[in-house]
């Protein structure tokens, strides 16, 4: 017991990280609300059936790769390998942006096939895709902004920028939006 009470402070979860975990629970609830609304709707007669454009599959590869580079960049940051870190985090940003761009392409291709997302003759099935995937995309955009902040901070020599907590927070968030996307993809393929 005595050894435990002398635990190093660093082994305890940092309040900011904890706040993020609660926020993740909160974001999950939002998507739970949307996906359960989707389930209810999908039982209706006029719910349009169509397959997802391949762009969404390609985007999945991009975000999975970005999770790997995110993980490596956190590792290099902790190892104080600044140059490698800068490179890896830039790759993460690029991969994140490719993900977002591919998703936009996916929506454009849906539209090209005559599946209207909004406006007249739009079907709730396609509108739901736009809302659910779009909201996820906004969360990814938020992550990209956070990554960019981390990237520019790496050029500063201030001592406090050696603290790994902010990067850990961003990293947890980034993996979360990745996992969330996998969930959404499986969900959208399954419930048709």
């Amino acid at each position: 017991m005595a050894t435990i009470s002398n635990t190093n402070n660093n082994q305890r979860i940092h309040p900011h990280k904890f706040t993020l975990w609660v926020a993740i629970a909160s974001i999950c609830m939002m998507f739970a609300g949307l996906t359960s609304a989707y389930i209810v709707k999908s039982n209706q007669d006029n719910f349009l059936e169509f397959s997802l454009p391949n762009y969404f599959w390609f985007s999945t590869i991009a975000i999975l790769l970005s999770s790997v580079t995110m993980h490596l960049s956190l590792k290099t940051f902790k190892a104080r390998e600044r140059n490698k870190y800068k490179l890896l985090i830039s790759i993460t940003v690029v991969l994140g942006s490719i993900f977002a761009a591919l998703q936009v392409e996916g929506f454009i291709s849906l539209d090209n096939h005559g599946i209207r997302l909004i406006g007249q003759n739009s079907n709730a099935a396609a509108s739901f895709l736009l809302v659910i995937i779009g909201l996820h995309g906004l969360h990814v955009l938020g992550g990209i902004i956070a990554l960019l902040v981390m990237f520019f901070k790496s050029f500063s020599q201030k001592i406090k920028n050696y603290n790994s907590v902010p990067l850990e927070v961003v990293s947890i968030y980034w993996h979360f939006v990745d996992i969330l996307w996998i969930y959404l993809l499986i969900f959208l393929i399954w419930i048709r």
Partner: peptide
Amino acid sequence: FPVLLSGFILLIFDRNFGTSF
């Protein structure tokens, strides 16, 4: 509250973008 927010987002789409939620 996030569930309310998702309800509101669908409402905004119905109001402004002609969707049929």
